[in-house]
Each structure stands twice: as structure tokens, then as C-alpha cells.
């Protein structure tokens, strides 16, 4: 998918939100769109999803199956989560049996299954976000667009996002994901587009340090510490039970 010289603004006379954006996303590639609040990350994602039309330039070679997960899921709808998700699966073109299976699998994976028969309006913000996530995933999209997917999710579900992205990439799909929380470092092989003043730059992400807790026997402590340091890791501390 390519953005060819895309210019976009919401109304005539207003400043351009996107100015001559040139970019492409290859099959099997994930791109994180980063930038300060209000810079136009969501606008760029909506453009990629086909929800906005550029005044100049074009979005080309957009895959047919698109999954779009908005920053805030609109829970003010008169459905249970199950009825809504089955309805969205059908709109995506899934047969009823396939829709039931896909909704069941994703609900189980995201621990949403106990809430499937709850009205959407009664779900917590995090659970509603999970519904938003599932509706964008049930049809195995070739282009997955996630607008701030970590927003409002509990820690356990946030930790599943990298696997969801990796699964889409493994199928040869493309993933566009926006983030202002700095969570993109947890994603596998992600490329970054930084949006500044309506234009894209592609800075390298600073490596994210992770902490691993390792248990060894008392006799192995010194050797393990030395081995880790020799491998270039920082050893933050050693706890020896009294």
C-alpha cells in the first residue's frame, strides 16, 4: 500500500494536517505512527483505512480486507457484545458459522467470553476496547489499522497486542499502528513513521530495555552474573534469600 503525495485538511482555509506524505507499507510489514498529541496520527490511519479522502495525491494498492480498530470504541449501541460482533463479522463477509467461530476464538483469547452476552453500554472501557479490537480482527484482515490499541486495555490484554500484530504479519498482512504511550517498542520488527508538522520522517526507535528475572542455585550465582555481563547485559541486582 502506498501513500502518493498525500495532502489532507478537514476544511478549506484550515491548515493542512498532512502535507505531501509519501510512504509505503509492504506485505508482512508493521509500521508505527508516532508523534505528539493532535499531530494527525489518527487522521493518517483513517486515510489509510479509506475513511478520509485526500485533497491531493492518492492512497494506492490498499488491500481489500481492512480491519480498523478506533481509539475509542463506540459502546453506546443497543446490542450485546455477541450480537454486535456477529453482526460485524457478517458485514465483513463471514458466513454465520465462520463468524461464530471467529468471534468465539477471539473472545476466548482476549478473555472477553464471560461478557459476550452483556449489553455493550454496560461494559467497562477496557472490555469495550476489546470488543473494538475483536471486530477489527474477526475477518483476518490483510491491512490491520490499530489506533492507539493499548489505550484503556488491561495489562494482560496489552501484552497480547504484539502477538496479534505478529500473527497478521505472518499471514503476509500489513499493520499500521499509532502510539503515544511508547509501547511500540514491544512490537516485533516495527518500522516507525514520525509525524511532524504534517510530514513523515522515519527515525530509528530507541531500544527498549526489558527486565528478566532468572533463578539459579546459590552455587551458580557468580558464574551466571559473569556470563550475563560477558554477553553485554546489565545485571541490576542479585537477591539471595536469607
Amino acid at each position: 500500500m502506498r501513500l502518493d503525495g498525500v495532502w489532507l485538511r478537514y476544511r478549506r482555509g484550515e491548515p493542512w494536517v498532512l502535507r505531501g506524505v509519501e510512504a509505503s507499507v509492504a506485505a508482512g510489514e508493521a509500521v508505527a505512527v508516532v508523534g505528539r498529541n493532535g499531530v494527525g496520527k489518527s487522521t493518517l490511519l483513517k486515510l489509510a483505512a479509506g475513511l478520509l479522502r485526500p485533497q491531493r495525491g492518492a492512497v494506492r494498492e490498499r488491500p481489500a480486507r481492512v480491519g480498523y480498530v478506533p481509539e475509542r470504541f463506540p459502546a453506546d449501541q443497543p446490542f450485546t457484545a455477541r450480537r454486535y460482533l456477529l453482526g460485524m463479522a457478517a458485514i465483513h463477509g463471514l458466513a454465520p458459522a465462520d463468524g461464530r467461530r471467529a468471534v468465539g476464538e477471539w473472545a476466548e483469547r482476549l478473555h472477553l467470553d464471560p461478557l459476550l452476552d452483556s449489553p455493550l453500554a454496560e461494559l467497562s472501557k477496557g472490555s469495550a476496547q476489546k470488543v473494538g479490537l475483536v471486530q477489527g480482527l474477526v475477518h483476518r484482515p490483510d491491512l490491520l489499522i490499530l489506533d492507539e490499541p493499548w489505550e484503556g486495555l488491561d495489562a494482560a490484554t496489552r501484552a497480547k497486542v504484539p502477538a496479534i500484530v505478529a500473527q497478521t504479519l505472518d499471514r503476509g498482512g500489513r499493520v499500521l499502528i499509532s502510539d503515544h504511550l511508547g509501547e511500540v517498542g514491544s512490537l516485533p520488527d516495527v518500522r516507525t513513521w514520525e509525524l511532524v508538522d504534517g510530514q513523515l520522517s522515519t527515525p530509528e526507535l530507541a531500544p527498549v530495555e526489558c527486565v528478566i528475572e532468572v533463578a539459579v542455585t546459590g552455587a551458580e550465582v557468580d558464574a551466571a552474573v559473569a556470563s550475563l555481563r560477558a554477553a553485554g547485559h546489565r545485571v541490576l541486582g542479585v537477591r539471595i534469600p536469607s
Binding site: K46, P74, M88
Partner: peptide, 17 residues
């Protein structure tokens, strides 16, 4: 009746505006 964001989701799901 349809929230604006849901209309966007419907647009993507059904295949365009």
C-alpha cells in the same frame, strides 16, 4: 442512531463509502 465512529467501522467493514 448510529454513532459516528460506528459509521466509520461500518464503512470499513462493508468495503467503502
Amino acid at each position: 442512531v448510529e454513532p459516528d465512529t460506528q459509521r466509520q467501522l461500518s464503512t470499513v467493514a462493508v468495503g467503502g463509502l
